[in-house]
Nucleic acid binder design. Structure first.
Lengths: 236, 236
DNA sequence: TTTTTTACTTGACAATTATCAATCAATGGG
DNA sequence: CCCATTGATTGATAATTGTCAAGTAAAAAA
């Protein structure tokens, strides 16, 4: 595996602080692989053999139970997933599949745990990453328990707008059926929720969203940094 | 503050592996306090000045938004809370209040971060703790998104039963109004949900629950270790 | 291009869950 | 002991959300 493939990884906050020697050791058993879209990467319940790093593309973390399924989050470059399972040497709690063509690095979990035990810097970096993941899920939990689906959609649109630079018009990140699942509703309900936001100035043309009246939508959505902070910008 | 107060803390998985010197340093600025029931300990949004350790009693972690509120989890002895906020030096995402009379140790967050930076064992212990917290929230998220309120209640009862040793009869941990909030429903809905479980052999007398037909209830609840594992016993 | 598939939307309806109001039961002062 | 308060329950109703079935639009394949 060419070293160049690991350059992006080395720059990650998770791997940057660790000793060169340990990084090299970690990458020795690692490899990078290209996957087409819609490919299952891992299944919940499986033992966590590899820590995954999304180098390009996008990965959907989802879960199923009793014939139902739900998307929990999307992993975008460059970040890792199933870090917690790797550290605890436990099974995956979520399944993963590519949303688009993706390049993914696979690092043997055993190596991660081994280096984690001897490299304090690496351990500390993992803490920071895990704390961030934890806080993200807590926010999602609050979003889900404290808001109706219409409010979740409104706040989601405001977050997406902000992530896209703040312009009134922007595009959805993925198909609506998946957005519905992420927001914890059905596709049909999402369709109606978009209509329900029309009175607040939201217009939808395919995947193109326009927020016609920022103040109106915010008055309805009541965004809150303790729920809606965007990790990279807000209070993490 | 008497050293004896910290004996229980030292035994915690989080603090056991660290160097004596560092533990002493960590406890230097710490103190233990007794709180009556129903006392607000922290408010979401506040800076995380102290890592809290519940030595006895019980603490409710909850959150509010737009006039609504929801209980996210209960912290029981001996464990910590708001560890993630402490590590990231970020504000609290949840508020906390005592459910009963409680003894709580308060360790200055700054000290935690400082020792965390120099004690690799401590850093590793924190990773384990955080990974566990993260997985617990992911499970809660799946429970909420994949199940109806009736199913959540059924599975909650099965978990509680297991935690209490598996006998057919056991008591609820706290008042139903709060249980409803934890399960993501209203108190009225919980009352009806208990009735909805009668056909599966569940009887309720005050806070006394009896599972008359284990197999029936499990057939309905379809418990799943990837959602319902009890941290201490199941796959963490 | 035409065909086929897939995503999205819409309408009608059903299930779930919440709200409001009233009642009942238990609990803790006075 | 009784009263006052709080928590739990119940009934009636409304809001929310999901399901099913059809239809439309758009994209992919032939």
């Amino acid at each position: 595996m060419p070293d160049s493939a690991f350059a992006g990884i080395r720059g990650l906050a998770l791997f940057a602080p660790m000793a060169d020697k340990n990084f090299t050791a970690l990458m020795r058993g690692a490899y990078v692989q290209n996957f087409p879209a819609q490919i299952d990467l891992i299944a919940e319940g499986d033992p966590s053999d590899f820590l995954h790093v999304v180098l390009s593309g996008a990965v959907d973390l989802f879960s199923t139970w009793n014939g139902r399924d739900t998307s929990l989050t999307t992993v975008r470059p460059i970040s890792t997933f199933i870090l917690a399972a790797t550290i605890k040497d436990a099974c995956y709690l979520m399944s993963a599949r590519t949303l688009e063509k993706s390049r993914i690095a696979l690092i043997p979990s055993r190596d991660v745990r081994e280096i984690f035990d001897i490299d304090g810097n690496f351990a500390r970096a993992i803490v920071t990453e895990l704390a961030q993941c934890y806080r993200a899920v807590v926010r999602a939990q609050k979003d889900l328990k404290l808001r109706t689906s219409l409010e979740r959609l409104a706040n989601y649109l405001l977050r997406l707008q902000r992530r896209n630079g703040g312009a009134a018009t922007f595009g959805l990140e993925f198909e609506k059926r998946r957005l519905a699942s992420v927001l914890g509703m059905t596709a049909e309900n999402l369709s109606r929720a978009f209509k329900g936001l029309q009175p607040y100035g939201v217009t939808v043309e395919g995947s193109r969203i326009t927020i016609g009246n920022q103040a109106d939508l915010e008055r309805f959505a009541k965004p809150n940094p303790l729920i809606d902070a965007i990790p990279a910008y807000g209070p993490a």
